[in-house]
Design a protein around this nucleic acid. Structure first.
Lengths: 209, 209
DNA sequence: GTCTATACTAGGATAGAC
DNA sequence: GTCTATCCTAGTATAGAC
């Protein structure tokens, strides 16, 4: 009884979070009105404010959903028994997939990082934001660990691992600025992007000759 | 006489554009108030509205200043007699420098691309925006030309040049998300970033062995 | 050319009906 | 739990003084 109520509650929240992700993606945080989010749901903002205290909390909910899913998808690859080269290749592929498949969420997640810059946050918001940034660092840390391992093993070119990881994630994350899905059935485009980008990214890393 | 008046006029506009770039960088377009921009100038918004019709026009002015400067700095390198490898290396270095040195402008320029997504533009705004996007494509095209040349010459690994260029620019552009200048005298950090990032980016491109 | 004062609107948030 | 009605603030933009 209580369980199913809790689930309903979660489902209700999630539905709103998904609409919010869509809206925030297109308009940005400041330009998105709660009215608009409600409209996407076919409701009015009364519904939104029943589940979320304010727009910021809703924004954080989107961000949290994103980073949690990203981490959950990435961890199994990190823990697998692959060597650095194969492991990195899989991780890169999965990160690209995450962006291709969940573009709205990834875009919003990025905007969350932007808010880091904006000072206008209350102490409580600041705390939540710090937690999210912390989790983002974790995610980045997964890549860093593999790159450092690969360098130690003499499989990757030596270099500043931290800057290299930021370059790799940047190459991929920048997709949110230019990638637009083409209609439903078109996996081809995404496939080609994943293949070419993975090749380039790995090529810069792996020692050759 | 008329000349010096024109110059004064331009200087006045430029001062405002620079303050606007600072503000837009930190707060984003929607969250930045014209009051705030004026405050940065030690003035009130009467001054801003004397030179610019509205906030959007001011935003475009920042964007235009950025892309024009970027193009002007990049063109001589493209037209030089270097081979693709050396040329590309110089171009990459210069692009990184542009971000390191003119972070506010680069950030706003990126946000301009974001507005491309937002539908809420009047036809006239749309036209200006299309012009800016066009110029951004030109800039990207400079890199594309060199990469294609390098592939043809057998100096670069074969691949989808367009996706590779977007990866390279992404790796660099993503800096606007994480790079923060450390105090005045600290060139060291920037130097290290440029060196490591250039190495990584070129390594992915150049054929070895 | 820049200021102050003010008109006007959008949108965040809440209260209370249902 | 969701809706309608309303309050209230922030911020764009303009008018008119200086």
């Amino acid at each position: 009884m209580a369980d199913s109520r809790n689930r309903d509650q979660r489902d209700n929240r999630l539905e709103i979070v998904e609409a919010a992700a869509q809206a925030f993606m297109r308009e940005g945080f400041a330009s998105t009105s709660v009215d608009h989010i409600a409209h996407l749901l076919g409701s009015t903002k009364g519904r939104v404010y029943y589940y979320f205290k304010n727009k910021t909390e809703l924004f954080f909910a989107v961000h949290e959903e994103t980073i949690n899913t990203n981490l959950a998808h990435m961890l199994p690859l990190v823990e697998a028994q692959d060597g650095p080269v194969e492991k990195m290749e899989k991780m890169v592929g999965r990160h690209i997939d995450a962006i291709l498949q969940r573009l709205p969420f990834q875009r919003v997640s990025l905007m969350g990082l932007e808010m880091q810059i904006i000072g206008r946050t209350t102490p409580e918001e600041r705390e939540i934001l710090d937690g999210l940034i912390q989790r983002y660092r974790e995610y980045e840390g997964l890549f860093l660990g593999v790159v450092e391992q690969g360098m130690q093993d003499g499989l990757f070119e030596k270099g500043d691992a931290s800057i290299i990881v930021k370059s790799i994630l940047g190459a991929m994350n920048w997709m949110i600025m230019w990638y637009r899905p083409r209609g439903e059935g078109d996996d081809k485009h995404g496939q080609r992007i994943r293949k070419s980008m993975t090749e380039y990214v790995m090529n810069g890393l792996v020692k050759k000759g």
